[in-house]
Amino acid sequence: MVILPLYRQLTLNYPTYYIGQTNSLGYIQPVNSSSDTLTKNNATWNFVPGLANANCVSCESKTNSGYYLRHQGYRVQLNQNDNTDLFKADATFCPKLGLADTTALSFASFNDPTHYLRNRNYELRIEPQAGDIGYKNDASFQIAAPWIQ
């Protein structure tokens, strides 16, 4: 599998918050240049071709090789790839033009394509697409250079 460059994803509505994980649960969390190395690593992802569909992406942890963001019970968490079809589908997200801003990206769940990756109360979840601006902002992300190479 070809690994794409490392990236960090910052939220459109909280521009200093990035997709990260704490205790294997996905969150958006504040990260800046003075954050410690672990925090920066936890907010840096290998974007690889989607485990279930190479036209989409999967987000592999920089700090834990073989661990991916995946949804389970609509909550995003970091789990080790168990190589099942369900895991691969849960860990695959299809980028779309940002729901709130076309300079951003939104990520539809591969196996539940009407649900998008979004933050709600700083937790990463997948939830059904909604038309309100709050949802659109919560489901739109800018891709930036990695914190740590």
Rank of each mutant, 00 (worst) to 15 (best):
P5S: 14
L12E: 03
N13D: 10
N13W: 05
P15W: 13
P15L: 15
T16Q: 15
Y17S: 11
T22A: 09
T22F: 10
L25Y: 09
I28R: 00
I28L: 04
P30Q: 15
N32M: 11
S33E: 13
S34K: 15
D36K: 13
N41I: 00
N41C: 04
T44N: 02
W45F: 08
V48N: 02
P49Q: 02
P49I: 02
P49S: 05
A54C: 05
V57I: 12
S58P: 03
N64M: 12
S65W: 14
Y67I: 01
Y68F: 13
L69F: 05
H71F: 03
Q72H: 15
R75F: 07
T84C: 02
T84S: 12
D85A: 12
L86K: 10
A89Q: 11
D90P: 03
D90M: 09
C94E: 05
K96C: 05
G98Q: 06
L99G: 00
L99H: 03
T102L: 10
T102G: 08
T102I: 10
T102C: 07
A104S: 10
A104P: 06
F107Y: 12
S109G: 06
P113Q: 11
P113D: 10
H115A: 12
H115P: 08
H115K: 14
Y116G: 01
L117V: 08
L117K: 00
N119Y: 03
R120H: 15
E123V: 14
L124M: 07
I126P: 00
A130R: 09
A130K: 04
G131H: 14
I133P: 08
I133M: 13
N137M: 13
N137G: 14
D138S: 08
A139L: 04
F141C: 02
Q142D: 10
I143Y: 05
A144S: 15
A145L: 10
A145I: 09
P146M: 04
P146T: 06
W147H: 10
W147Q: 02
